[in-house]
């Protein structure tokens, strides 16, 4: 029997600082045992527990896509004991990964649909995974029009800048990058808050799904816009954050009504959330 609490040992291959404030770093991890990579079969939207022996574990969304083989990527915001330690680790260091955990975005339902991805701040990680997954040549034809609204407070806080630039060049994805404000005269994208940009740029809600991830304030003001655009609650998909420990629906910590956010979520439709206590 596999012990679901036991992390797979991994080695840090590289650490990249993503943002100007240096609070977000992306770590690329390689499995020490190749057979563990076989067992770690994930789908965009899932998360994993990153484990540092001596400090503990943190639940983090998987930023890499299963179409990218041989490694895992996580973008970690520096907030507590474990995440701060990970920021200070070096390539070659050993840590652990446990997962994949939780539900993924409902790719079966999304097939044949137009998809608008709305992200803000550092919640863009599983959205990055999803975009890479959908743009993969084997997958692109499964989906309709793909639009992305991605906002940060200022340009220096945008994640995955090189990839954003590459996606901007493609004709099979419509990118709407925005910042709250900037004094950069060469800034060539949008300026404005995510809800306003969504209102201007989101595709017709007919045959469309919205996936939205970001800070609560962004979600709060974007949901009415989506409703106004005609997206019904069952076609608005979000992912919840919660303090977690086990990640497998046993330790009880992330309980929300009848659900465990780790196991029954973290992906929920707005329709599902409307039937749960508003305690997240």
């Amino acid at each position: 029997m596999n012990n679901p609490y036991l992390p797979y040992p991994v080695r840090i291959e590289s650490i990249v600082t993503e943002t100007e404030d240096r609070n977000l770093r992306t770590i690329k991890l390689l499995f020490l045992n190749p057979e563990d990579e076989e067992k770690f079969k994930y789908i965009p939207g899932q998360f994993a527990e990153l484990s540092v022996a001596g400090l503990g574990e943190i639940p983090i969304g998987i930023a890499s896509s299963p179409t990218e083989k041989g490694f895992l990527k996580f973008t970690v915001n520096k907030v507590g004991k474990v995440s701060s330690h990970i920021h200070n680790m070096q390539p070659g260091d050993i840590m652990g990964v446990r997962g994949p955990l939780g539900n993924w975005y409902p790719w079966d339902l999304l097939e044949g649909k137009n998809i608008v991805i709305i992200g803000g701040g550092f919640a863009f990680t599983t959205l990055r995974s999803s975009i890479v997954y959908m743009l993969d040549p084997r997958n692109r034809s499964r989906f309709g029009e793909i639009s992305v609204v991605y906002g940060a407070r200022f340009p220096g806080l945008l994640l995955f800048k090189e990839e954003l630039a590459a996606w901007e060049q493609r004709d099979d994805i419509k990118m709407h990058i925005t910042v709250d404000s900037t004094d950069d005269p060469n800034w060539k994208y949008n300026v404005g808050f995510v809800p306003a940009v969504t209102k201007q740029k989101a595709p017709d809600s007919e045959n469309s799904y919205a996936i939205i991830c970001g800070p609560p304030i962004m979600i709060k003001f974007t949901l009415p816009v989506l409703t106004e655009l005609g997206f019904p609650p069952e076609r608005i998909i979000s992912s919840l954050e919660m303090r977690m420990k086990c990640g497998i629906g046993i330790c009880g910590r992330c309980n929300l009504g009848t659900e465990y956010v780790c196991k029954d979520g973290p992906v929920f439709t707005l329709e599902q959330l409307s039937r749960l206590p508003n305690e997240y």
């Binding site: 609490y5 503990g56 574990e57 420990k245 910590r253």
Partner: peptide, 10 residues
Amino acid sequence: CWCFDIQDEV
């Protein structure tokens, strides 16, 4: 009541 925490001790 089964809820538990997980902590590392060194």
